[in-house]
Design a binder for these strands. Sequence first.
DNA 1: TTCCAGGGTAAGC
DNA 2: GCTTACCATGGA
Length: 289
Amino acid sequence: MPLLPTPEPVLLEASLRGGQAFRWRRRGDAWVGVAGGHRLRLESHPDGVAWTAHPPEAGDHVAAYLGVGPGYRDALSRLARDPLLEEAVDAYRGLRLLDQDPWEATAAFVLSSNNNVRRIEGLVEALAREAGTRRETPDGHAWWTFPGPGDVAALGEARLREMGCGYRAPYLQETAALVARGQVDLPSLTGRPVDEAREALLALPGVGDKVADCILLFGLGHGEAFPVDRWVARWIARRGPDLDPSDPEAVRAFARSRWGEDAGLAQQFLFHATREAGLEAGGSAARSR
DNA sequence: TTCCAGGGTAAGC
DNA sequence: GCTTACCATGGA
């Protein structure tokens, strides 16, 4: 297996199964998933990440997908100096921001509203098997690409409901249709100012403030986006700064002024640390993994 | 049985 | 403008 050397660690489980991406499964000591139309197999190594890719040239994208680059160490050193983040950064050093496909991130986070990670993973996989393209590795492992917006739109609301999308079915169908028609050009939003990109996303059905920030952060490379969800609000309420947890606008403004371009990575640490603490306290919830 | 999950929408003030 | 009920589904 080729090795991607990384000066800083890469926490594969926290990064791949922590609610950013939804197509990763554990296979023994390795993680197998589909990203950007490629099937990847990743395994933690003392000096980096060992990988195999199908098709093989997809390996060129592994570093970018995992957020491996010189910027990570710098961002960590800035965030680790913040008393609000010190503990979380220390505990989860190696947690990465994944660089995902804009449309897949959009579809997945439309499905994420008032939903849980496990079920989102099931829905995204079901979409791939229903409307994606079946591929096979040379050694016979079948996998499915994530379907494009036209293919998702063509499934129709009724079929999406049958697949378990619930009340989000019409949102996903309409958003897929809008993207397929080119009324919102997702990839171009990467190069636009974050506020403009955010406004464009909010025009999509099923995309509100929080989902828009997730798409900006995980699918469009806007590292300053700061999704405010239940867990971040919980963190504010319990041990965060003196803010109203029920006022997402205020929380976002705080994050923006405090962490700037690093806000998205900061959010990942807060989200992950708060969620892990909650799961441990829940006992049975932690066992279910 | 009730609560909860990476919320969004629209009706009602 | 702000608050509130409702929205499917499955696991704990």
